[in-house]
Design a binder for these strands. Structure first.
Length: 231
DNA sequence: GCCAACGTTGGC
DNA sequence: GCCAACGTTGGC
């Protein structure tokens, strides 16, 4: 996964590509990185764990995608891709490439056009949720897996059976205030002890996943924090 | 298919 | 920069 910025985790991406041009709706290459992060290693074994998670059930139709907002060089390539970078692109849209983790990839394959995702800033001074984006194109082949120059090139992926997918996302808005991981963690601990919407939040229970599903309850609770004083 | 070694993620 | 958590690899 991206790159999981990306890959970033999420996303992360890089620049040019030559393959997979078939469907390049979003911008073509830019540099991104992000988030997310993705798991970088290419895996062979798990290669076909197709959908281990069930397709977007009605309760899990919101997402969280990680990307790195601060510069970090991987093979000479800057992985930086924060929400401001997405916002600055033409159409404020980009493809979330570079995800190299099966669970994260499978979540992206479940995404439906129009669904919302939090843009999470990871691996930085202040990790947390910066804003909201929308899925504008459902999963398609991540061309960076075939690009030898790309940081997320995967020699084990074949053109006739691509391993990795990506989606296109469009910037929606910043949260009224940045919601730091540390604050979410306080709620998580509180909810875990006494009950509450964040008690099982993937950000804490599967901390390393760069693309995560949120229930509407989790999503709405996090959103409600932007109108509250920081905890 | 088990599992130890290894590599990556990402908070701190 | 440390290091815990956890995913992946590969020997057996």
């Amino acid at each position: 996964m991206p790159p999981e910025r990306k890959a970033r985790v999420g996303k992360r991406r890089r620049a040019s590509s030559d393959k997979g041009d078939k469907d390049e709706t979003a911008s073509s290459a830019k540099e991104r990185v992000g988030g997310k992060r993705k798991a970088a290693a290419s895996a062979e074994t798990g290669a076909n764990k197709e959908s281990s998670e069930s397709p977007g059930s009605p309760q899990q139709c919101r997402w969280l995608m990680k990307s790195e907002p601060e510069s970090r060089f991987e093979n000479g390539v800057d992985m930086k891709f924060g929400i401001e970078d997405l916002k600055a692109l033409p159409n404020q849209t980009d493809c979330w490439d570079g995800v190299r983790n099966y669970q994260a990839r499978n979540f992206m394959r479940q995404m439906k056009e129009g669904q919302l995702a939090f843009f999470y800033h990871s691996n930085c001074k202040e990790p947390g949720i910066a804003g909201i984006m929308k899925i504008v194109k459902e999963a398609y082949v991540d061309h960076t897996q075939f690009d030898k120059k790309d940081v997320h090139y995967d020699a084990t992926s074949k053109a006739d059976n691509p391993k990795w997918s990506m989606v296109d996302v469009q910037y929606q808005r910043m949260l009224k205030r940045f919601v730091p991981l540390a604050e979410l963690k306080k709620y998580h601990l509180q909810h875990r002890a006494k009950g509450g919407p964040l008690k099982d939040m993937a950000l804490f229970t599967r901390a390393r996943l760069s693309v995560q599903a949120l229930t509407t309850e989790e999503f709405d609770f996090v959103l409600s924090l932007e109108d509250k004083e920081p905890l």
